Amino acid sequence: MSVPRLETSPMQQQPAPTPDSDTPLEQALDWLILLEDADEACQARFAQWLAASPANAEAFARAQRCWQSPALVSAAARLEQRRQPAPKRARRLGPGLAIAASLLLVVGITLHSDLLLRLRADHVTAVGQRQSLQLADGSRVLLNTDSAFTSRIDERQRVTQLLRGEAYFDVAKDSSRPFEVSAGPVRVSVRGTAFAVRYLGDAAEVSVEHGEIEVHARGNDTRIHLRGGDSIRVGPDGVGQRTRANSASQLAWVQGRLVFDDRPLHEVLDELRRYYPGWIINGNARLNDLRITGNYRLSEPASIMRSLAQVTSAQLHEYPALLILN
């Protein structure tokens, strides 16, 4: 995963963006880095570039909004809390470079976490990938994007664990061995049915397509019985209310689709980020609460972003591993 131009060498050694090689927005992103430690000559070149075209001024304003977006700033803030005191340096990083450095740390921490997860898991899917599994008892499992799964199936037990992500289970009937799925705060027990478990962060959601299941909430004696069409969420705030699931949208990913029914754009983008192997940034906060209804092919997140840009009358800027909506 890459982020745009995160050079950290002394700024006076960096060349100014060249108008004939980059788009105005790419040049503006370069200027954000250069201006962190600009001398008078660099500032003069920037002023000349800014005045050269109205498109340059517009691109720089847009780049500033993206660079200061809540997604980047919050990532930097979370990492800053974890950092140990570092030795004093000759020059402090400005806020832009601090965010850039923090984003690189995000990548490093993510890779480290994934390594630990891979050591525990039997199966791991990459971002944007789905994987179909056939277990030893005849049950079928479909792993969604960015998921990790392990199982122990023998003559006495059928025990599985969703370590992260989302999975759909079509369980083979066996009255002598219940089929169990653990996922963070929940444990699901069934004997033969079809259901999905979504485990992201510290919350889990269970949705039943058909049949009956029993959900155990960890930490207390709560047991919930669900039937086809039921859904329930269990998280740090406790056990939620049982609802009748909209299977057309909640289980659409099993058929390779993403369905949104009157959802705010910020929720739609959060879901798309699970499928896109890069950064998706909304540079215009006024778009966050626009309501979105649509049915999309989940294997094409960039195409979905183009469609969203069209229906919201926004612009989409596409770079390698980076999509910016404005």
Rank of each mutant, 00 (worst) to 15 (best):
S2E: 13
P4W: 12
R5V: 13
P10K: 06
Q13L: 13
P15R: 14
P17M: 07
T18Y: 07
L25I: 14
L29G: 03
D30Q: 12
L32D: 03
A41Y: 02
R45Q: 15
W49S: 06
A52H: 03
S53H: 10
E58A: 14
E58F: 00
F60W: 07
R65Q: 09
C66K: 07
P70Y: 10
A71Y: 11
A71K: 09
L72D: 05
V73S: 12
A77V: 13
R78F: 14
L79C: 12
E80W: 09
Q84I: 14
P87N: 09
P87Q: 06
A90M: 09
R91M: 15
L93P: 03
P95W: 04
A100C: 12
A101R: 13
A101N: 09
S102K: 03
L104R: 11
L105D: 15
V107W: 09
V107P: 01
I109R: 13
I109T: 04
T110L: 08
L115F: 14
L115Q: 13
L116W: 11
R118V: 11
R120V: 06
A121Y: 01
D122Q: 10
H123E: 04
H123L: 05
V124Q: 04
V124R: 07
A126G: 10
R130K: 13
S132R: 14
S132V: 13
L135W: 03
G138I: 06
D146Y: 13
A148T: 05
T150Y: 07
T150C: 10
T150I: 13
I153A: 06
D154P: 07
R156E: 11
Q157Y: 12
R158W: 12
R158T: 01
R158S: 05
V159C: 03
G165E: 00
V181W: 05
V181Y: 07
V181I: 11
G184D: 00
V188Y: 02
R191N: 09
T193P: 02
T193W: 03
A194D: 08
A194N: 06
A196S: 15
V197Q: 02
R198A: 06
G201R: 08
E209C: 00
G211N: 00
G211S: 07
V215K: 00
A217V: 09
T222F: 02
I224D: 07
H225I: 09
L226V: 10
D230Y: 11
D230V: 12
D230N: 14
D230A: 10
D230M: 08
V234K: 03
V234F: 10
G235M: 01
G238F: 08
G240M: 03
Q241M: 12
T243V: 15
R244A: 15
N246P: 06
S247K: 13
S247N: 15
S249W: 04
Q250N: 12
Q250D: 15
W253G: 03
W253C: 11
Q255Y: 01
R257D: 11
R257Y: 02
L258A: 09
D262R: 08
D262P: 03
L265E: 04
E267A: 05
L269V: 15
D270M: 04
D270K: 01
E271D: 09
R273M: 02
Y275I: 02
Y275A: 00
P277D: 15
N284C: 11
N288S: 10
T293E: 02
N295T: 14
S299W: 00
P301R: 05
A302Y: 05
R306N: 08
L308N: 09
A309S: 11
V311L: 09
T312V: 11
S313P: 06
L316E: 13
A321L: 04
L322H: 07
L322M: 15
L323C: 00
L325D: 04
